[in-house]
Write a protein that binds this DNA or RNA. Structure first.
Length: 131
DNA sequence: AGCCATGCACCG
DNA sequence: CGGTGCATGGCT
């Protein structure tokens, strides 16, 4: 879910650590990687996926999200979802409006391979290995 | 004890 | 003066 700072004009979106390490490629350098993500309209966005050192851990952040957020008219409280299409590894994104009164559910139904998320055989091994 | 949202200091 | 990168505080 987008926070005020996520939706603000800073252009940075803080990513939950668990989500980042589960659905995005592992990165060992703070600069991270440029990610190509496709939305439900087929439009493609490029985000810089990186992290900041925080305490003894990391804070994962998506940079360059402002054009996407503006194009989708997202605001704080709205929910953004990411999924990985296997085996392509293609990233797709969807969003759900926070307006509880008007159920503007979008959900991304690309109906491509139909495989939502998997290809993760190391579920119960603990934290993802780094470097 | 750790995470995450945000404040903020330093650097251009 | 604005942004990046980080630290801190609130909260779980």
């Amino acid at each position: 879910m987008l926070s005020a700072s996520d939706a603000g004009r800073i252009g940075r979106l803080v990513l939950p650590k668990k989500c980042a390490e589960a659905y995005f490629p592992p990165i060992s350098q703070p600069e991270g990687l440029p990610l190509r993500v496709q939305d439900s309209k087929g439009k493609e966005w490029i985000f810089q996926f990186r992290f900041w050192p925080n305490n003894n851990s990391r804070m994962y952040v998506l940079e360059g999200v402002t054009p996407c957020i503006q194009n989708m008219q997202l605001q704080a409280g709205d929910t953004v979802t990411f999924s990985r299409m296997e085996p392509e590894g293609k990233l797709v994104m969807g969003f759900r409006k926070a307006s509880s009164t008007s159920q503007s559910d979008q959900d991304n139904e690309t109906s491509q391979t139909g495989d939502g998320v998997s290809a993760n055989g190391d579920a119960d091994l603990g934290p993802s290995p780094l470097v």
